[in-house]
Design a protein around this nucleic acid. Sequence first.
DNA 1: TATTGTTATACTCTATAACTATA
DNA 2: TATAGTTATAGAGTATAACAATA
Lengths: 144, 144
Amino acid sequence: MTEEATDVLAGRLGYLLKHAQQRLVQAAAPAMAPFGIDGRELAVLTVVSAGAPISQQEAADQLRVDRTTMVSIVDALEVKGLLQRRRSAADRRKNIIELTATGLHCLRGAAVARDKVDRKFLAPLGDELARDFIRALQILARED
Amino acid sequence: MTEEATDVLAGRLGYLLKHAQQRLVQAAAPAMAPFGIDGRELAVLTVVSAGAPISQQEAADQLRVDRTTMVSIVDALEVKGLLQRRRSAADRRKNIIELTATGLHCLRGAAVARDKVDRKFLAPLGDELARDFIRALQILARED
DNA sequence: TATTGTTATACTCTATAACTATA
DNA sequence: TATAGTTATAGAGTATAACAATA
């Protein structure tokens, strides 16, 4: 690539954000592979384990994915034995989703692997710029 | 969303990066619409206008998209009359892609609109953090 | 009537394989 | 043999619409 063109692109926020995200996805995939899950599935395991029991819909809202997408993800996690559906006694329309023992074990391992990927990804920034970057992302990813 | 869950997610780099990118795409779409192009097409017009004449392949390399994807984008831009294909005299396998007068006009308008979107998107960060954010992205988006 | 989960469907983006013409 | 462009095709990822069960 010419330097001229690189400069043009370097100034484009959309290009930078898209490709930074793609690079992280590519770095994360091989780290997740040994655990048999991908980043999206790890995110679901994470929110399921975070606090009080939640339904598929609540998990979907938290991760900002469509509820039909959540059906697919939960299907996959249930097939792998990492997660269970259970009808809510309080509201029988809802599926409460819960980690299995295997799922908890998987989550713990995968979370460690993922943290390592994140740190390695951010390493070129140095500590201070990495902190600024995360802080900026937290502001920018927030719904208005 | 519970604060508990928000905290869990706030620490996840992948979640933040993905959703920040999605928010920018959503903000950019309506700004590009009056010009009849999307962000990906603007990127192609930008690299085509940047310096020396380039081929489809070179444009694809610079934008890190597949050459088959570039065919579709160039098709669309040519149909809209914003861009022209021309066989390279030096290497008749190559299509040199060039802006039309309409394409140049479109690029200028869309680039201004896009810059406005970018600035508005980054505004919540303040000047200093926004500069740090761009600097971090330039490091992270770089191929190793 | 509204909500939750589900299915079927479609659309976008992207990538792979195979073809052609050129080198 | 290798490269540039093209086409056909397929795979993610996501979203919309319609339905059943439940509130």
